[in-house]
Design a protein around this nucleic acid. Structure first.
Lengths: 152, 152
DNA sequence: AGTGAAAGAATCACTTA
DNA sequence: TAAGTGATTCTTTCACT
């Protein structure tokens, strides 16, 4: 993983519709060595995939909620059940186990409050022991990017 | 935006390296009408772009932090200054203005605690009036997806 | 929405430094 | 071990139906 690889990654995480020729030009290579680098980065799992980013507003999914969860349940069995349940909920775009006061944090994207309420009920009923669940709602998304800070 | 468009979007937000032929097959079209739909969805801004998703761990960016911010400053001038400052910080992957107790929530990705501390100092010095800033750290990322819940 | 042709891009065997 | 050339194949794009 040299500087050229990093520059390729920085470019691709901004726009993966760049052609091999454009990428190669940007890093002063010809297409073949550039292509080999991309294959290597894919096989190494550094490039996890290529996705289209969609506009949530235009798709009627304008409500972003963050859910903070505390629980008394900490068995590994309960945990796998919880993770499986949350995994199966497509409204959950992000899910983290946290250090500190709350045990879990979730980012949820839905159409409106009615849909959020619906999601919330499904969530608290999906596993036992979700007693302390607090929801916070976003008024505005100021910044959102999938691009990691690779500094180029 | 009919059902076919939605199915195309659902596919592309999972994997935009699918060829036009594969996409067309999946929605029972030939390449040309399928291509025209994609162009329409791009021009409408529903497809915002195509990006490569990278593995943060493998790039040495394993620390995810959430930053909650309260402020007394609410002038539009202060706000644009704050937004511009945060925008310029590549460690910030998500930034929301919130309803409720805290005014802002941020998702930050960095290498380690040392780098986080560095970021934190830059943040609180970027604009005046960031008195109440609390950081929470993720122990584990359980789920992360850019795919919106389009239900297909 | 489809056909078919032309242009463009990706892929790979082989070569070179 | 990394880069380049050139041929082949696959993909995208578009005028026309």
């Amino acid at each position: 993983m040299d500087k050229t690889d990093r520059r390729l990654l920085a470019l691709l995480q901004q726009d993966c519709s760049l052609s091999l020729q454009e990428l190669a030009d940007a890093v002063n290579l010809t297409t073949t060595p550039c292509w080999k680098r991309l294959k290597r980065l894919e096989e190494a799992g550094i490039i996890q995939g290529r996705v289209a980013l969609l506009d949530p507003e235009k798709l009627g999914l304008g409500l972003t909620a963050f859910v903070l969860i505390k629980t008394q349940q900490h068995s590994s069995q309960w945990y796998s059940q919880f993770v499986a349940a949350v995994d199966a909920m497509p409204e959950v775009l992000g899910f983290w186990r946290m250090a500190g006061e709350y045990d879990y944090l979730m980012r949820v994207q839905v159409a409106d409050m009615k849909r959020y309420d619906d999601f919330y009920k499904r969530l608290v009923n999906s596993v036992p022991g979700l007693s302390d669940v607090t929801s916070s709602f976003a008024m505005e998304q100021i910044k959102y990017t999938t691009a990691l800070p690779l500094e180029n």
